[in-house]
C-alpha cells in the first residue's frame, strides 16, 4: 500500500476502523450468548423454544442501541436447527418499533430465501472471521440499501451460523462523510469489489463502482490503506480536483 498521506489521513483511517470495529461488538456478544445457550451436542436438535428464544431480548436491545442498524439477528447454518436448514431469528426496526423479519424459508420451496450463498454468510463461514458485504439493495429482506456484516457463531466449536446486522447505507455514509470530508484532498472508501461506500467529494458517488481498485491504481492516489482486514475496505486519498 502507498505511504501514509500524513497525520490527518492516519487519524481518519483509525476513526473509520474504530467505527466499523464497533459494529462488531453486539455481534460478538450475540455469538457468545449463542454458544452459552447451545451446547455442541444439541446441534441438529436446536429449537427456538428450548434454546434460541433466550436470544431475543439481547437482539432487541442491541438493535435499539445502534444508530446505524436496520436489522440484527442470528442466521443458522444447515443442520443446526431441528428440521430446518434455513432459520432466521432476525429483528428489524420500523417506525412503530421492532419486528421479527419474516421471509420465505419454507423447506422445499424453490423460491426460499437462500441466504447460505450470500457473501456475508458464506464469507463469515469460509474465513471463520467477520465479513462485510454491500452496499446492496436487499429486496427480500430489509428492502433498503444496506451493508450487511456478520460474525461466525459456534456451537461446541463448530460453525453454527452467523450473528449479523444490516447497517443502513445512508446512516453509515453520514457518519463516514464526517471523517472523510476534513481530509486535505479527495477521500474515498472503497470495498474489495470496487464499490464506493462513501466519499468526501462529488468526484465519486456511493454505490458506484470504480473502474480500477485504488490498490491497483496507486499512481492516482496520495495514499491508499486498508481500514480493517475483515472488511477489506480501503481508504484512498487523491489530490483535490480543481
Amino acid at each position: 500500500m502507498t505511504e501514509s498521506g500524513g497525520a490527518g489521513f492516519r487519524q481518519a483511517r483509525e476513526a473509520v476502523t474504530r467505527l466499523l470495529d464497533d459494529q462488531l461488538v453486539p455481534l460478538t456478544g450475540l455469538a457468545e450468548r449463542f454458544a452459552g445457550l447451545v451446547p455442541g451436542e444439541s446441534v441438529g436438535q436446536v429449537t427456538e423454544k428450548r434454546h434460541l428464544a433466550g436470544l431475543l431480548p439481547g437482539i432487541e436491545a442491541a438493535l435499539q442501541a445502534s444508530d446505524l442498524a436496520a436489522g440484527l439477528g442470528f442466521a443458522a447454518a444447515p443442520g443446526v436447527v431441528e428440521d430446518r436448514d434455513h432459520y432466521l431469528l432476525w429483528l428489524q426496526k420500523h417506525a412503530g418499533g421492532v419486528r421479527r423479519l419474516s421471509l420465505n424459508l419454507a423447506p422445499g420451496d424453490p423460491d426460499l430465501y437462500d441466504y447460505h450463498d450470500t457473501e456475508w454468510f458464506s464469507g463469515a463461514q469460509r474465513l471463520g472471521a467477520p465479513a462485510a458485504y454491500g452496499p446492496y439493495v436487499d429486496y427480500a429482506g430489509a428492502d433498503l440499501l444496506v451493508v450487511t456484516i456478520a460474525v461466525p457463531v459456534l456451537a461446541g466449536g463448530r460453525f453454527a451460523g452467523v450473528a449479523g446486522t444490516d447497517l443502513l447505507a445512508e446512516a453509515l455514509e453520514h457518519r463516514l462523510i464526517q471523517l472523510l470530508r476534513p481530509l486535505p484532498g479527495d477521500a474515498v472508501l472503497v470495498a474489495p469489489d470496487r464499490s464506493v461506500i462513501a466519499a468526501g467529494t462529488p468526484r465519486w458517488m456511493p454505490g458506484e463502482r470504480l473502474a480500477v481498485h485504488p490498490a491497483r491504481d496507486a499512481g492516482r492516489y496520495l495514499a491508499v490503506e486498508t481500514v480493517n482486514d475483515w472488511t477489506g475496505w480501503v481508504l484512498a486519498l487523491a489530490d483535490a480536483t480543481t
Partner: peptide, 22 residues
C-alpha cells in the same frame, strides 16, 4: 411472484398488516 411469500402462507391480520405497510 418472486416467491418472497410462500404458497399457502397466511397474510397477517388486516390491522397489523396495514400498519406494517404504512
Amino acid at each position: 411472484h418472486l416467491g418472497l411469500i410462500s404458497d399457502g402462507e397466511q397474510l397477517p391480520p388486516e390491522q397489523e398488516f396495514a400498519q406494517q405497510l404504512g
